[in-house]
């Protein structure tokens, strides 16, 4: 029984890793080797593909643009979502349930629906092709998600803590910053991770709202895909490099990530 379990898990993990191995394998090959025949290991190991990315500004600026708007989005989402999640977890107020559901519908709404008006909206207020435009557009789904996850984590903190603090003479802002935020530190970390992740992986809005100055790496990659002769090696190297930031941030939240995926509700 136990062996069978391990076999199933090992097979699944193999299934997850093989396509990534293939991408990594290709990123170290030259194009002649890629097109020449199938090799399971780079015969003629080269870093040339990575060199292209790190020396060509249109490539590495794509990375910087993406990182910039993703961080901006995470900061904005957390700042507005923290007090709101506290309100949802501690108080009942007029229309609270409907407001919560309305927020969730924005997480569920397909970005394609908002594509056209976003384009017009950000063009008309002169924010088209800026980082803040993409960050704000991504708030549409990251803020509801952040409120949802944080609310789950905050509901796990006993209310007696709030009450004791108020009796001890703490004002609300002081209590919130000094006592409450440290208490749900892991929840905030996980929420930041999720905001980061969903903003990092999104393509449609990021591509539509930018043209040159804020062009994200994912859009740079699709441009290469549609070009006639595809540079497979560079494409694979760029793909490998987009996986790295996610792996870096997941390391910090590894112990809480499962709870985060359950939106703090376990």
């Amino acid at each position: 029984m136990n062996l069978r379990k391990k076999m199933v898990l090992a097979l699944y993990i193999l299934f997850l890793l093989v396509p990534i191995y293939w991408l990594l394998n290709m990123s170290f090959k030259s194009n002649t080797e890629i097109l020449g025949g199938l090799t399971f290991w780079p015969q003629d190991f080269t870093l040339a593909n990575y060199k292209v990315i790190f020396t060509d500004p249109s490539w590495y600026e794509g990375y910087l643009n993406s990182l910039y708007y993703v961080c901006l989005n995470t900061v904005i989402s957390l700042t507005v979502a923290l007090p709101a999640a506290y309100a949802f977890s501690r108080y009942r107020f007029l229309g609270d349930k409907h407001l919560f559901f309305w927020l969730l519908t924005n997480r569920m709404a397909p970005p394609a629906v908002f594509l056209l008006p976003f384009f017009q909206l950000y063009s008309s207020i002169g924010l088209f092709d800026t980082h803040i435009a993409v960050a704000l557009a991504h708030c549409l789904f990251s803020v509801p998600l952040a409120v949802w996850i944080l609310e789950g984590f905050m509901s796990g903190v006993p209310k007696e803590i709030d009450e004791t603090a108020y009796i001890d003479g703490y004002s609300f802002p002081k209590f919130f910053v000094k006592i409450f935020i440290p208490l749900i530190g892991s929840g905030i970390g996980v929420t930041a991770f999720f905001c980061f992740m969903f903003s990092w992986v999104e393509l449609l809005l990021a591509r539509t709202l930018t043209s040159v100055n804020a062009k994200p790496i994912v859009a740079v990659m699709t441009r290469t895909v549609s070009a006639s002769g595809i540079d497979w090696g560079v494409l694979a190297a760029a793909g490998v490099l987009t996986i790295l930031p996610g792996m870096l941030v997941i390391w910090f939240v590894r112990n809480h990530v499962a709870k985060g995926f359950a939106l703090g509700r376990v």
Binding site: L23, L38, V201, E202, V225, I243, R254
Partner: peptide
């Protein structure tokens, strides 16, 4: 946990690219 979370952290178009390469008869495994 970390290994299983990897596919979730890959930009969606890169997921497409990975499988585009992986599934091709000439260069994909």
């Amino acid at each position: 946990l970390i290994v299983m979370a990897i596919p979730l952290l890959i930009p969606w178009n890169v997921v497409g690219t990975i499988w585009q390469i992986f599934g091709r008869a000439d260069i994909g495994l």
